[in-house]
């Protein structure tokens, strides 16, 4: 039977795990390579477009309950694996995840979505130059908002990351759990901007480094294949 994994955490922590998860399935634990994975055995047909929303909320509740007290690496919903694939994933990623979960044990991520005013819309430009300048101006506007936020919150934030998206720009702040209140207080001093939407705290996954392609261990695995 396929499994739907929720998240990965360090094996030696004592998480608060709900009894049931997606589709009221029993939540199970798998220890491998110093990591603990939480998952449910579930038939794929149990999640349909009709039940997807409630399943996503159940999934989110499990991850958030565990994340309230310990750092986790959450899976994207819905991710389907076989039990051997889950074990293999834990074995392969053990060094990277353990390093991340240890160094970021007390950190969370706050996320801001900066919406582009003309998100996905063509410019009203009548010349090519005006078109490029309009796009550049919008990019600078988002950049300025991001820089203003960074200056305002500098004292509470350990590190920043950014991603351009179809809607505009996403800014991620790495924050110590103990600084969340201070972070929110500082944020509340800023004038409300309908184009900036904050959420969090979330697991600090934007700060999890991507696997290195030149990793000798990976190259060996590839060579063997």
């Amino acid at each position: 039977m396929p499994v739907i994994p929720y998240c990965i955490l360090l094996d030696d922590c004592s998480p608060n795990v709900p009894v049931t998860g997606v589709g009221d399935s029993h939540i199970q634990r798998l220890s491998e390579g110093g990591l603990l994975a939480l998952y449910s055995e579930l038939e794929k047909r149990n999640i349909s477009p009709n039940t997807l929303q409630s399943a996503a909320l159940q999934f989110h509740r499990v991850v958030q309950t565990v994340f309230e007290h310990v750092a986790v690496v959450p899976f994207r919903f819905p991710t389907w694996l076989t039990p051997p694939e889950l074990i293999q994933h834990l074995q392969q990623e053990s060094p990277r995840y353990k390093a991340f979960l240890t160094s970021h044990a007390n950190y969370v991520q706050m996320e801001a979505r900066l919406a582009s005013v003309a998100s996905g819309l063509p410019t009203n430009a009548t010349t090519g130059t005006a078109h490029l300048r309009a796009r550049a101006a919008e990019s600078h506007r988002l950049r300025n908002i991001a820089d203003t936020l960074k200056n305002l919150l500098a004292s509470e934030v350990i590190e920043w990351r950014e991603r351009g998206t179809q809607e505009g720009l996403r800014v991620y702040a790495l924050v110590d759990r103990r600084s969340i209140t201070g972070f929110r207080e500082r944020l509340s001093k800023r004038e409300h901007d309908i184009n900036v939407r904050w959420s969090g705290p979330w697991p600090a996954t934007e700060f999890l480094e991507s696997p290195r392609r030149s990793d000798p261990e990976r190259r060996t695995e590839k060579d063997r294949a």
Partner: peptide, 17 residues
């Protein structure tokens, strides 16, 4: 150059449309 900016901008604008 200005002409290159105009040319590239126009091409990208038309491609988007």
């Amino acid at each position: 150059h200005d002409s290159q900016i105009e040319e590239m901008g126009l091409a990208l604008m038309k491609l988007e449309q």
